[in-house]
Amino acid sequence: MANDILIEIKNLSMYFPITKGIIRQQKIAEVKAVDGVNFFIRKGETLGLVGESGCGKTTLGRCLLQLIRPTSGEVYFEGVDLCTMASDHLRSIRQRMQIIFQDPFDSLDPRMTAGEIVAEPLRVHTRIRGRELREKIAELLKIVGLDPSMTERYPHQFSGGQRQRLGIARALAIRPSFIVCDEPISALDVSIQAQIINLLEDLQGEFDLTYLFIAHDLSVVRHISHRVAVMYLGKIVEVANRDALYRVAKHPYTIALLSAVPIPDPIVEASRERIILRGEIPSPIALPPGCNFHPRCPIGVEICQKEIPSLREIEEGHWVACHLA
C-alpha cells in the first residue's frame, strides 16, 4: 500500500437481515446496503461520495468508522484493519476518526450546553480538565466561528448554521485526522451552506484533515472534493478525479445524475439536454440480476441483464463499473 493512503477499504459489505416472527426469528431476506465496495482515501484529501437516498452512502460511512460492524470486508486505517479489532482497542483509534452529522437538530443533546457538548469528547478521551478545558472549549468555538461567550447556551438557542458549527467543533475537539461528513449541509439554508463549506475547507488546510464527504448535491461535491465516488444501490459505479468525473463521466448513471442537476440560470436551462431516467430505484431487497442499473439504463444491452460489471480502471485513476465503458 502506498504510504500516502490513510484509509483503504476492501470488499466491504453490510447486509441487514429482514426477519419474520417475534420468538423464533427467521431471516427471510436481506438488504444489501453496501455490497462489495473498494476504495481508498489519501492523506489530506477529500473524497466525495454521491448517490441518491437509500444507495448506502451513509451506511458505508458508518461502517468505515465501525459505528456499525460490517458483515464482511476490511477497513484499513493507516494499514491496520479495524474490522478485526476488538472494541476497547477501537476506542483509541476513534480519537483519530470523527463524524459530522446531517441534522444539527438531532445530533446535539438538547439538555447539554454548547460548552458541555464540545467538552464531552475531551473528557472521554483526554485528561484535560478545569481551566485548561475551559480555555480549550473557547478556542474550539473560536475556530469554528462561534463567539466563546456562547458557551453556556443550549442548542435550541442557536440557528441551524451555528448548530452545525457546534457539531464541527465537537468533531475537532480531539484533533482527529479523518472526518466523515455525512450530508453536513443539506439541512441548512442556501445562504448558510457556503459558510459551512468554506469553514470545512479552511479546517482541512489548518489541521491537515482527510474527509469523506457524503452528499447528494453534485455541485457542492464538485466544489469540495478532490476525487469523487458515485454509488448506486450499494455499489460504487464510478470513481475518478473531480475534473475527470465532471467533464467526462463514463457511467450512464453518473451522466444522468449530472444532467438532472438544475442550473440556476434560465438561459442555460432552456438549452440543456436532460436525460430523464425511466422508472424508480429498485428495492435493495430484490436487486435485479446483472447490473443493478440496467432496468433504468438508457444504453443497456443484453449482457447487462446477466453479468454484474466489475469496477475497472479505464484510464489512470478513473474507475467505472459498466460493461459498455
Binding site: 440557528s159 448558510i192 451552506q193 457556503a194 463549506i197 464538485r222 465532471y246 440560470d265 442555460v268
Partner: peptide, 20 residues
Amino acid sequence: SVPRLDKPRKERLVPIDGQP
C-alpha cells in the same frame, strides 16, 4: 453563493454573512 456545475469551479465560495 451556490456552486454551479456549468461554470468552472471556483477556488472559494462567496457566502452571505451572518445568520437568518
